[in-house]
Design a protein around this nucleic acid. Structure first.
Length: 858
RNA sequence: GGGUGCUUAGCUCAGUGGUAGAGCGUCUCGUUUACACCGAGAAUGUCGGGGGUUCGAAACCCUCAGCGCCCA
């Protein structure tokens, strides 16, 4: 049967074929009518413009691990894939394409442009989904969704109307984040704050007694000032509150107002109030009836001030205004560079301009409260729990959400305006009166992706999918989008689904960083391309590395060397399975009864049983890293380095049937356990070993408690100690590993039965000998007949090192046992353990001392 | 400024009260018929500093220092 496995493992030879096999067999297709319990995950939809990056690879590896494990556990698993239409990002891509022909979207017109975007999507969009297949993601392709699909659109319009009717959507004139390049409003989360180098200028307003100095980073907006504000308790300005000062450049009188919002310790303690161009100023203006003076157009160009600055870009104007003020002697102080946080468009990086405009908003307070309560009441669990405070911090302090975008690519706002300013929301299947016109804007992308957990199941129709798979079992995503997407999913789902949140658990993982823990970025040149590494090392190696690094909620560093290490692990599995099969490992019939097995067989079954229960419980707790670590060491250390080695003597003999069966069982179970993390290689090995159809639909291992055998574990631990010590002796003595040494075991009890197994591993020739050297471990003595004399210096060094270690251990134990407090208060088991340690070290010291004394003088 | 983490072997990180661990790297030896993508052996840590609690602290508390992230 081993002929079925190539002599070396080549991932590229099996991956694509196996994936195709799984998809064709329909293993990933969920059945809503199934009687099995449901386990569902919706894939956080990647942008249609995106390519697979290492973060996706991590995210999907973890989701696939869970999906595959649950499938093996007998759940009806649905992992639903799809993509996000990514409004601004996608529109930008297509606009850029048009620009190469010197065209803008306006040259095409709205309908033509949207058609163009769809064309682009058909040709180049969604490359990422093909790349997912490389990873082995077990998603249900028959249910692939796109946030701009008609069904999604139906959901979006229905929910918009429902929210509007509930008073949760309103239209208002507010200061919003405006991108002067994308020419659209943005929500708070689409703005990235960076520390920029700017300037901080103090300008004197007014004349003589009636003057006040304001400090600002945005002098160019002063022509839009409607007031100057001070803190009500500020003694410097108290007498001026209620009076007016002259606003330079435009020569307008503006009032001095008092507002708590002003920080008297900041700058001069007096700030200009530019109601139409700053969110804080806007708030103050509303409180004090300060007029809104608009001085800039949508492109960020000065407009309507009636000064020479009209027509200048905002940054040009900033310089020019300060220059003019300086010539007028009105600049009191200047500070450059002044480092402060400035908002940038997350899509094009241009500086955001706060802009007064009429937009649609979601009133988030009641939604956010329901979302917070769902977690507080335990309806939804956040894993790891340490990230809960971050979640609460966010949902408890949320601003209303601006959802209208001045774009063409997206779900059009289902609002129509009548000739006399009537406003109606047109739901699915409804039509607006003929003389009405639709709002030209589209909805924020998050408004549709926020519905992903139920719109994908066919809501608002009462579908079988919805009934079976909502709420989803777990959401797996990076903590970096907790506030972007997760919170929106929570809010919209909980509202739409009558209080049932979209998932039972939110499992948050960290970011993948470079080998030094630095953020990956194009400019640093430290970006790891998952495709490149899958080509080089195989998908399983990449997946194993990522899963092994995935400690809950924390970032992980990733280096090519470590992926190489996982590839080595895959190769190890391959070779071990090949070797096992060459030796007749099989799964025929029942496992032999425990009392008929050797201690070595019983030991590996015991270790297997422990590994199964630990790995299972760790995976259920989303402890991927620790689960992988256990599997790695069970496979490499216990199975390969010890069990296979210790079994070689048995395989060389005539009574190997039971061991062949045990080995077959252990491999069978191990491959099942590893399958969720390393689906390809395990499938190949397991189907070869068992001849069964597929590991994808095989059963998840269940620990057999009866196999746990502490006595055998202790015995094998003793054997390991003996073997290690003899190896060290051989090594210190410079005896070639290939050289067989005549030797004899002097041992009593169970350990004596395994002399030949140990001798095989150690390359000792057992027989009656005249000993010329020995190694003693506890009560076991291994004597050797070395033809020449031994290297006394090396042997003395070895023994002295052991002696020193034993003396040190003995002292630590003595100190504890002589400590009255310890004896009085430490639990009995601990005291017992220390006593045993003392006894062991004492005999060790005696024995080693005697051995040292018996050594010939150098 | 508000919040929240982190500091353990050369690097990246596990380790929630009982003799300090892993992977990668390093050194020595090795063509032992699964595997050199391997095997065997070895070296390496006042667990950031200081104080405290405790019979016992890498772990719990206080404090200082340094680094990071999120939000403003």
């Amino acid at each position: 049967m081993s002929g079925d496995l190539a002599s070396s493992f080549s991932p590229a030879d099996i991956e694509a074929t196996l994936y195709q096999k799984w998809v064709s067999a329909g293993y990933f297709t969920a059945d809503a009518a199934s009687s099995k319990p449901a386990f569902s995950i919706v894939l956080p939809p990647p942008n249609v413009t995106g390519v697979l990056h290492i973060g996706h690879a991590l995210d999907q590896t973890l989701q696939d691990c869970l999906s595959r494990m649950k499938r093996m556990k007998g759940f009806e698993v649905l992992w639903l894939p799809g993509m996000d239409h990514a409004g601004i990002a996608t529109q930008n891509v297509v606009e850029k394409q048009l620009a190469t022909d010197g065209k803008s979207r306006h040259d095409l017109g709205r309908d033509e442009f949207v058609k163009k975007v769809w064309e682009w999507k058909g040709e180049s969009g969604g490359a990422i989904l093909e790349q997912m297949k490389r990873l082995g993601s077990s998603v249900d392709w028959s249910r692939e969704r796109f946030t701009m699909d008609e069904a999604m659109s139906n959901s979006v319009v229905t929910l918009f109307k429902k929210m509007h009717d509930a008073g949760l959507i309103y239209r208002a004139e507010r200061i919003i984040n405006w991108c002067p390049r994308c020419l659209t409003a943005l929500s708070d989360i689409e703005v990235e704050h960076q520390d920029d180098s700017g300037e901080f200028v103090s300008v004197r307003y007014g004349e003589g007694e009636q003057s006040i100095t304001v400090a600002t980073t945005r002098p160019e907006t002063m022509m839009g000032d409607g007031a100057v504000a001070v803190h009500p308790d500020d003694p410097r300005y108290k007498h001026m509150v209620g009076t007016s000062v002259l606003l330079p450049l435009v020569n307008r009188m503006i009032p001095i107002i008092a507002d708590e919002l002003v920080d008297p310790d900041f700058g001069t303690g007096a700030v200009k109030v530019t109601a139409a161009h700053d969110p804080n100023d806007f708030e103050m203006a509303v409180r004090h009836n300060v007029p809104f003076v608009v001085i800039m157009n949508e492109h960020g160009v000065m407009d309507g001030t009636g000064t020479e600055f009209d027509g200048m870009d905002r940054f040009e104007a900033r310089v020019a205004v300060v220059e003019k003020l300086r010539s007028m002697g009105r600049i009191v102080a200047e500070k450059r560079p002044y480092i402060h946080a400035v908002g940038h468009c997350s899509r094009c990086e241009i500086t955001i301009e706060p802009r007064l405009s009429k937009q649609w908003f979601v009133k988030v307070a009641p939604l956010a409260k329901a979302s917070a309560d769902a977690v507080r009441n335990g309806l939804v669990t956040i894993e790891p729990k340490e990230l809960e405070p971050r979640y609460f911090d966010w949902v408890d302090n949320m601003h209303d959400w601006c959802i209208s975008r001045q774009l063409w690519w997206g779900h059009r706002i289902p609002v129509w305006y009548g000739p006399n300013d009537e406003v109606i929301v047109v739901g699915p299947g409804e039509t607006a009166p003929p003389d009405y016109t639709q709002d030209p804007d589209v909805l924020d992308t998050w408004f549709s992706s926020g519905q992903w957990a139920f719109s994908t199941f066919g809501w608002p129709e009462k579908t079988a999918d919805l009934a079976k798979f909502y709420p989803t079992s777990v959401l797996v995503t990076g903590y970096d989008i907790l506030f972007f997407w997760v919170v929106r999913m929570m809010m919209m789902s909980t509202f739409a689904m009558d209080g049932v949140p979209p998932f039972k658990t939110i499992m948050l993982h960290g970011l993948v960083r470079d080998q030094f823990g630095k953020k990956m970025s194009k400019s640093r040149g430290n970006v790891i391309d998952p495709i490149e590494f899958m080509d080089k090392y195989g998908a399983d190696a990449l997946r194993f590395t990522l899963a092994r690094g995935a400690n809950p909620g924390t970032d992980q560093a990733l280096a090519e060397d470590w992926i190489g290490g996982s590839r080595n692990f895959a190769t190890k599995l391959w070779n071990a399975t090949r070797f096992a099969m060459m030796n007749g490992a099989n799964i025929e019939g029942e496992l032999p009864a425990a009392d008929s097995l050797s201690a070595i067989d019983k030991w590996i079954l015991s270790r297997l049983s422990e590994t199964i229960s630990e790995v299972d419980s760790l995976l259920e707790k989303y402890e991927f890293a620790r689960a992988c670590e256990l599997l790695y060491h069970f496979a490499w250390d216990d199975l390969c380095d010890w069990y296979l080695e210790l079994s070689k003597e048995t395989f060389a003999g005539t009574d190997a049937d039971k061991t062949k069966r045990v080995l077959g069982h252990v491999l069978d179970q191990l491959l099942r356990l590893l399958h969720p993390v390393m689906p390809f290689i395990t499938e190949q090995l397991w189907t070869t070993l068992t001849g069964a159809e597929s590991l994808v639909i095989a059963q998840w291992p269940v620990a057999n408690a009866a196999h746990v055998d502490k006595a055998s574990e202790k015995l094998v631990a003793e054997m390991q100690e003996i073997i290690t010590d003899v190896r060290r002796f051989r090594n210190d003595q410079g005896i070639k590993t290939s050289l067989k040494i005549p030797a004899r075991f002097v041992a009593n009890g169970a350990i004596a039965d395994y002399s030949s197994a140990m001798a095989f591993v150690l390359r000792l020739e057992l027989g009656e000998i005249t000993p010329s050297a020995k190694v003693e471990i506890g009560s076991v003595k291994v004597e050797f007949d070395l033809t020449g004399s031994i290297d006394v210096v090396a042997e003395r060094a070895r023994l002295e090192k052991d002696l020193a270690a034993a003396i040190k251990d003995k002292q630590t134990a003595e100190v504890k046992l002589n400590n009255d407090g310890f004896m009085a208060k430490a639990p009995e088991s601990v005291v017992l353990e220390i006593r045993e340690r003392l006894a062991k070290t004492s005999t060790d010291i005696e024995r080693i001392t005697a051995q040292l004394g018996a050594l010939p003088k150098a």
